[in-house]
Simulated scan of single mutants.
Amino acid sequence: MRIAIVAGSKSDKEIMDAAKEVLDEFGIDHKEFITSAHRSPNLTKEVAQIIDREFDAAIVIAGLSAALPGVIAAYTHKPVLGVPVASDLLGLDALFSIAQMPRGIPVATFGIGKKGAKNAALFALRILSLKNPDLLKKLKDRAEKEEEELRKLNDM
């Protein structure tokens, strides 16, 4: 099981780290890539082809026009999970760009920033858990632990 984490800029490292934190918690192998759909289209195509050959899914982080998740999705049949980055327009531009993919190029869209990256990582794990009962158990155990923590806060 391997997940690619792709960002359009090295300035998105904090968001990449949020996804990595979740994958590390579950012991999932991952690799980071930095490429731009606009500044390095050939490299982006190569990264997408690597994802298609070597990974089970890709978490793709992008801001501004947020073309990167769609370009990656155009070159792979693996699940692409798009995470928008906040920018001058608070990330709404990126959110809408990722969410409005044309027919035939699906990209799952998550919330803006680090919370979205964590949810994208958890969603990728849910996809992988469809064929991995041990991972499914870990996900269920994590959910139970979170609920137990909330019960303690309520003296329940």
Rank of each mutant, 00 (worst) to 15 (best):
L64S: 13
K145I: 08
I50R: 15
R39T: 06
L150E: 15
A94N: 04
G113P: 06
R53M: 12
F26M: 00
S36K: 03
K152T: 10
F96D: 09
L153V: 12
G63R: 04
A117Q: 03
A74T: 12
V83R: 09
L81D: 08
D17R: 10
E14Y: 09
K138Q: 14
L130P: 01
F55H: 05
E32T: 13
D56V: 00
G70F: 00
G116A: 04
V83S: 10
I61D: 03
M101Q: 11
I105Q: 08
V6W: 01
E144D: 15
A74G: 12
N154L: 15
H38R: 09
G111I: 04
N119C: 05
E147V: 15
L136C: 01
L64I: 14
V85P: 08
Q49D: 13
E147W: 15
D155M: 13
D134S: 11
S129Y: 00
K118L: 04
T109E: 05
A143G: 11
Q49G: 04
G91A: 05
N132A: 00
G91H: 06
L139Y: 00
A108K: 08
M16Y: 07
G63T: 04
K152G: 07
L130G: 03
E32I: 11
A18H: 05
E147G: 11
K138S: 11
F110W: 07
P79E: 02
A94V: 03
L153A: 14
R126T: 05
S129Q: 01
I59G: 08
I15P: 10
Y75V: 02
V47S: 07
L64F: 14
P69A: 03
D24W: 07
S40F: 02
P102W: 06
F33D: 07
A58V: 06
G82H: 04
